[in-house]
Design a protein around this nucleic acid. Structure first.
Lengths: 201, 201
DNA sequence: ACCTGAACACCGTTCAAGT
DNA sequence: ACCTGAACACCGTTCAAGT
């Protein structure tokens, strides 16, 4: 009774297929950034110079297209966590990663929502990437907690709530204004760090 | 060159009009709560027992319908701020209000986004309500800052970023799970309160 | 194996006709 | 002043025909 696994787009091997696949992805990324995750698929196909059926052949659902469009970015984010694990200061490492994460999960309007859903819906194309991201973040969190730099009662789920809140604010920042998510994160951070005990103790 | 003011729905005086207006609003609230702010307008009309044209007559845009559906809730929130202004403990007052605000601005999926847009788009039906809400919150914030209970560098805009971040997390909480926005707010609060100086000073 | 585009469905929005 | 529902437009999605 296993529900079939989510569809993950694959780059075709045949030359014309690969070319179209790439063109669609490039057009999708551009459209998502400009119009958000609900950009018109017909426009994306048109801009990629393919018929609408071709888009559907490679990416049968919008979720599959979003997954493919954000795949590299999320992979980079996960790799970054590995790199930061060796850092001397685990709080600095966590902070740096959170900043990086906020940027990657809010590259276009609607992404945080999709990823948040994917976090707990296994039938979703982005679920695997989200799960990997979750465990990357959890590792950095645990390290900072072991060093007693982050309050011990903070769970990884709570960390991701804070992260997605910050990302949503960034996604929805008024166009002209600077985004305010750095400030948001810094304020949040003050709430989760272990405050130094009074001196002489 | 004044752009015309945003359309604000008014309850008609004629009996049949008023009846339909109420029925549409009731159906809309139910639909928004179940399906989010992009619920199908045709369904709402059908459930209210009116033709689609009647819905458009009373609420020419989706934004006008959302404004009307959330009008009472936001008015209540603003009144609550007035009441809390006389509180002894201005930090408790602010905390209580933030909790209340988070609940009101996340009654259905998509609301926070609409209200956030309305905050800085004057041509939007909910703009007036948002502006009133903003100044209500700013008053409570200033009181808490005068009492040196909230860090003095926190701006009202930043407070609303934190608020809408919390509301978004609540909106998007996984269905079964408890929403986690209380926890979110409590963590955020730790980041913005003035921490007691070491004793004996 | 991949591409095309017509066809269908769904839903938002308008408007002429009616009470 | 208000209501109705047909009409149109737009866009998502499928699929038969083609290379």
């Amino acid at each position: 009774m296993a529900d079939d696994p989510p569809y993950i787009a694959q780059r075709p091997k045949r030359a014309d297929g690969a070319r179209n696949y790439d063109a669609i992805l490039a057009a999708a990324r551009k459209a998502f950034e400009a119009e958000g995750s609900d950009a018109a698929l017909e426009d994306i196909a048109a801009r990629a110079g393919v018929a609408i059926g071709t888009l559907y052949r490679h990416f049968p659902t919008r979720a599959a297209l979003v997954e493919a469009a954000t795949r590299d970015g999320l992979a980079h984010l996960i790799a970054r966590a590995e790199g930061l694990a060796d850092e001397d200061d685990p709080l600095a490492a966590l902070t740096e990663w959170m900043d990086c994460a906020v940027h990657h999960i809010s590259t276009f309007r609607g992404l945080v929502g999709i990823l948040t859903q994917s976090m707990y819906d296994e039938g979703t194309p982005s679920h695997a990437a989200c799960a990997a991201m979750h465990s990357s973040g959890a590792d950095l969190l645990r390290a900072a907690q072991r060093a007693e730099l982050i309050r011990p009662d903070l769970t990884a789920d709570e960390l991701f709530d804070l992260l997605s809140g910050a990302a949503w604010v960034r996604e929805n920042a008024r166009p002209g204004q600077d985004d305010g998510s750095e400030r948001f994160l810094r304020l949040v951070l003050e709430g989760i760090v272990v405050h130094a005990p009074p001196p002489g103790r």
